[in-house]
Structures are given as structure tokens and as C-alpha cells.
Amino acid sequence: MQIDDTDRRILRQMLAAPGLPMAELAERAGVTAATCWRRVERLRAGGVILGEQAEINWRKLGYEVEVSLRFTLDKTHPRAFDEFIAAARDVPEVLEIQTFLGQTDVRLNVIARDMAHYQEIYRARILTLPHIADTDALMLISTIKDSPELPL
């Protein structure tokens, strides 16, 4: 799908201020509300805009610990990836699941209220996931940059 400078302006504004009413988005992008609406609908239909979602500050809800867990799976089992991922989806504290090529097969981003809660999640829900050959944990200390924005 081809996008032009107007589409890029609209996308930049959507990224900068998600959830803007269409009229305000149009004003910020320098187009009429009707033009903005048509373009946003075309970008959605073309798969450029996949959806809009709330960004939640988990710390404000009492989740103080964030851990990135990296797994190497036992790939001797033909369904290791599928079964691991299906089971990981059922862990409510898993916010993100990514798969990789290389030494790490899967990464889970896990949140917890505190270290005791994390230990409970890790022992009861994470270590019981199927086909784990090896795991490594990285605890988040701070986020320096977290932006979905690219130069449009």
C-alpha cells in the first residue's frame, strides 16, 4: 500500500496522541475531518493501522517488578514451540511473547507486584511451562526509550 505525506502526518499525530477525536486529529494533521476519516479508514483497510489500544502504566496498578525471561526450548519435541506458547498465553502476568532465531527461542515479558509475587509466578507458572531446556532472566531497572514511532 502506498502512503503519501498526508498519510504520514496523520500517522505521526496518531502515534503522538493516541485516542484523539477525529476532528482534532484532522486539525493537527492539517486536513479536513472528512479527509482524515477517509484516510484513516483506508489505512485500516490496507493493514497499516492494525488497531488502537490503551497504554497502561502497570506500576500505577501496583506491579513494580518487570522481568524479561529468555528461553531455549527442547526442540527434540516437534510441537515444542506451539505447546510452550499455548501454555505461556495462559499465564495472566505474561504481557508479551516473542520468538527468535538464534540462541534464544522465546522471550516472555512478565510483571509482578513485588519480588515475592514474582517468585510465586516463576515457580508455579513459569517453571511448569513445557519443553524448557534453559532459561535466563533479565530484571528491568529502567526504560530509557519505549516508542513505537519511526520516522514517517
Rank of each mutant, 00 (worst) to 15 (best):
R59C: 07
R59H: 09
K60Q: 13
V67W: 02
R70C: 04
R70K: 14
R70F: 04
F71S: 00
F71D: 00
T72Q: 02
T72M: 03
L73A: 00
L73F: 00
D74G: 05
T76L: 04
T76W: 02
T76I: 04
P78H: 06
E83H: 03
F84G: 00
F84Q: 00
A86H: 09
A88D: 13
R89L: 15
R89V: 15
D90T: 13
D90W: 15
P92F: 13
E93R: 02
E93I: 03
V94C: 06
L95T: 04
E96D: 12
E96G: 10
I97E: 01
Q98D: 14
F100Y: 11
F100W: 10
L101G: 11
G102S: 11
T104S: 06
R107L: 14
R107Q: 13
R107K: 15
L108K: 03
N109V: 05
N109S: 06
I111Y: 00
I111A: 02
I111P: 00
A112C: 13
R113W: 14
R113P: 05
R113A: 05
D114F: 07
Y118C: 09
Q119R: 09
Q119Y: 09
A124L: 15
A124D: 11
R125Y: 14
R125T: 07
L127A: 14
P130H: 09
I132D: 00
T135K: 03
D136G: 10
D136Y: 15
L138T: 10
M139D: 12
M139V: 12
L140S: 14
